[in-house]
Simulated assay, not measured.
Amino acid sequence: IFSRPPYLPPSSALSSPSPKRFVVMAACLHYLKSLPVLFFFFHVICAQVPYHDCLTTALNYTSNSTYENNLNRLLASLRENASFTGFYNTSVGKGADQVHGLVQCYKDISAGDCSTCADSAASQILELCPNSKAAVIWFDNCLLRYTSFNFFGIIDESKNSYVDGDSIPNPVQFKQLLRSFFNNLSMSATTKNSTLMYATGYVWYTDNITLYGLVECTGDLSLKSCDSCLKTSITTIWQCCSDRESARILSPSCVIRYEIYPFYGSLTPAPARPASSPPPPPANQSTTPSTPDNFP
């Protein structure tokens, strides 16, 4: 079970800890039927695509206010600058009306796709979260986030969990593989030689099932903070979602995801598992934290 606090400035900016609530978001109603006991422990919400969190515990702004004007200027700036490097963060305004935000595209998409995703995110976050002073939205190609306080460089520990697909065969074995797989991806993304804080890879599970994974942190974090965010997300996915064919843990600071089909890069399937291969140890995985050619 994992905890998620009400959305307030990070604990370093609070005088006392806030109470916690438990949350899990599931993409498929049929999965919820298999979790009758868990309803007593945390609030279950069916996911809506695009994935988003309006952070309803944050204060709302008034229409036609200075804050709304600054937010619109911020979103316009994020849209305009996203495709240059794939990451952009900025602040607009002063004092209580200041707005801070960032946009990040996943490293394996083109600059054109990044620009398209940033445009969609900036438009839809206002439609999905009207008058919210803090919100985050995740697409398959990008994420966009804004708040009324300066969060740059600070880990947001809130976690939203989404699951999909059928049950995975032999879940006990799969759970062990999943943790070592994501641990290795995390190490690839957070080594001193990595400036991207991003890695993808695959590992064979059975002759017919190949697991594909992705980990990524937002560009405002340090390698140490990225490592911390990914570790808590790996623990979350291992605890909540490791018996399904598909799952993702979405945080405002980092993302991890796995599928049984290729969903990143060129979408080329992994090579077939050799017939004589034993059950795959973690070393069989392939990770790709290298610099993409899509951005300057």
Rank of each mutant, 00 (worst) to 15 (best):
N208K: 11
S228W: 10
A135P: 00
W138T: 03
D227F: 13
G165S: 08
S120D: 12
T190E: 02
V163R: 04
Y202Q: 04
L143Q: 13
L214M: 15
D113L: 13
K224I: 14
F174N: 00
T236Q: 05
S115I: 08
Y212P: 02
S225P: 01
L214W: 01
K175L: 11
Y198A: 01
K175P: 03
Y162D: 05
Y146T: 04
Y146C: 04
R145V: 05
S123E: 14
S188Y: 07
F152M: 09
E127H: 15
L144W: 00
F182L: 13
T235S: 12
L223V: 09
S228P: 03
M197C: 04
L185S: 01
Y205S: 04
L196T: 05
S228H: 12
A189W: 02
Y205C: 05
V203M: 12
T236V: 12
A199Y: 01
S186Y: 02
C229D: 03
G153M: 13
S233T: 08
L211V: 15
A122L: 05
S148F: 13
W204A: 06
D140G: 12
L185K: 00
L221K: 03
Y198Q: 03
F182N: 00
Y146R: 04
G213D: 03
P171Y: 07
L128W: 06
D119N: 12
F149L: 10
T190W: 02
V136Q: 02
F152L: 11
Q173R: 10
K159A: 12
L126R: 14
S158H: 15
K231T: 15
S194M: 08
G165I: 06
